[in-house]
Computed example of a mutant assay.
Amino acid sequence: MVDIPSGSESLVLDSRVFTMAPRTFGNIIKHLPQEIGELLRAGGRNAGEYLKSPRRSSQHWSWPVGMSDNSAGGDSNAGNDSGTGGNTQANGGTQRPNTVLNFMLSNKVEAALWLTRIFTVVCSFLFIFPILGGNPYGFYQRALISNAATSALRLHQRLPHFQLSREFFGLLFLEDSCHYLMFSLIFMNGYPITMAVIPVFLFALLHACNYTKNILNVMGPDSLQFMRKLIDKLQLQQINILRFIACTEIFIMPAIIFMMFAGKCSFFLPFVYYKFLSLRYTSRRNPYCRTLFTEMRLTVEHFTATPSCPGIIRTACLKAIAFISRLSPPIPQ
């Protein structure tokens, strides 16, 4: 037997422990599904903060007030718990200030895409207009490398899970980001071509303007009005810019052929660029290359149908149309 000490050192067992314990554990079991649901909604990173929050710890898991020997002290503790919960709720309701840095950190991938596009715009501008001096070829390479990084990052957004399968590579070559990743790799180490920088520059400018407008909205509705007006004017001309980009993509092909005969590019470059142009022709999201080919064919056919057109030119144009039509890839439905 175990002797229980008597006197001042005796162990006093409060009978209220046994009467209140069933209600306490019943309260725990009752609110357990709700706690599990809130924990799952909190997510991976916020789960630890949720488990440590005073509001959560005092919401369903605190002992009843009657468990305390001193009821006044229990009321005081309950008041402290409710006050702590109120303070926590007030602190939880406050959010971080909506600054540009917080906006960019909220989506780091989009912010990285914006920075690479801005760098592409700057390097392309400095290559076309060498106002800072230096070697223009360095800016040419930096613009294409930055565009390749942008395309690779955007491609990872579109197809995040890489697979070694025919279906995956079929989807890969349907993406415009893959097309311009290929475009950058084609011209990166070759002879600098100004026409090759124009599509890269304009695409980066258009996409950077969209994110810049979001940043201006975070800064305030009246911030940098001149920048907002420039972006609005640029977006109004978006279709014309996309048509100009498609026209540039088409006319790079004859420029490459002339450069091949001049000895300024590889013999294989026209064949590689033909593959790029075929991908642009079958693009799902950008039909302007296909539209420009159709419009140019109709224009040439209309010109050759006029009586004033010489017979030699008419024959050459019709043969060129037939040759290009045979090279055009089938359009996926």
Rank of each mutant, 00 (worst) to 15 (best):
Phe169Met: 04
Asn77Met: 11
Leu230Cys: 14
Leu279Glu: 04
Gln238Leu: 09
Asn87Gly: 02
Pro192Tyr: 05
Thr248Met: 12
Asp14Ile: 00
Lys275Phe: 13
Ser6Gly: 01
Tyr274Cys: 07
Val218Asn: 03
Ala90Gly: 02
Met1Pro: 10
Pro130Tyr: 03
Gly48Asn: 10
Leu171Cys: 02
Cys123Glu: 10
Val218Gln: 02
Thr282Trp: 02
Ser62Gly: 07
Met259Val: 03
Ser151Gly: 01
Gly93Met: 08
Val272Asp: 00
Gly43Arg: 10
Thr94Trp: 04
Arg45Asn: 11
Ser68Ile: 01
Thr84Glu: 05
Pro332Trp: 12
Cys265Asn: 11
Ala255Phe: 07
Gln59Glu: 14
Thr291Cys: 06
Ser15Cys: 09
Phe323Arg: 06
Val109Gly: 05
Ser106Glu: 07
Met195Gly: 04
Ala255Cys: 08
Leu242Trp: 07
Lys229Glu: 15
Tyr273Gly: 02
Gly37Gln: 10
Leu298Asn: 10
Thr304Gly: 02
Leu279Lys: 12
Phe162Pro: 03
Leu113Arg: 09
Lys264Arg: 13
Gly79Ile: 06
Ser57Gln: 14
Tyr288Thr: 10
Val272Leu: 07
Arg243Gln: 13
Cys247Gln: 13
Thr248Gly: 04
Glu295Met: 09
Gln59Met: 11
Ala111Asp: 04
Pro192Gln: 09
Ile28Asp: 04
Ile321Trp: 12
Leu185Lys: 11
His156Lys: 14
